[in-house]
């Protein structure tokens, strides 16, 4: 009886050693030179909204059916 009890506890505790099975998307530990955001330059002067709308427009331009009007 005691053996069963001990075995149960050991088996139950074995779950604690279980490792995470979900992939964790870990960011790198990069601490090198800082890279400027693409809108922080002479072209955009930090205008993030304009950069985003420009990129989005470029992005949508790749859809030729939208360009010619389907």
């Amino acid at each position: 009886m005691r053996l069963i009890l001990v075995a149960t506890i050991v088996l139950a505790l074995a779950g604690c050693g279980d490792r995470e099975k979900v992939v964790v998307y870990k960011q790198g530990d990069y601490q090198g030179k800082a890279d400027a955001a693409p809108w922080n330059n002479a072209t955009y002067n930090g205008d993030k909204a304009k950069w985003e709308s420009d990129i989005r427009a470029r992005n949508r331009m790749q859809d030729e059916t939208r360009r010619i009007g389907s």
């Binding site: 964790v24 870990k26 990069y30 090198g32 890279d35 955001a37 693409p38």
Partner: peptide
């Protein structure tokens, strides 16, 4: 997103930009 190059780099020279 989970870049293998970043994970194995011994000097951590990789980074993700905000984009």
């Amino acid at each position: 997103s989970d870049a293998p190059c970043m994970a194995v780099c011994p000097v951590d020279c990789f980074y993700h930009t905000d984009e």
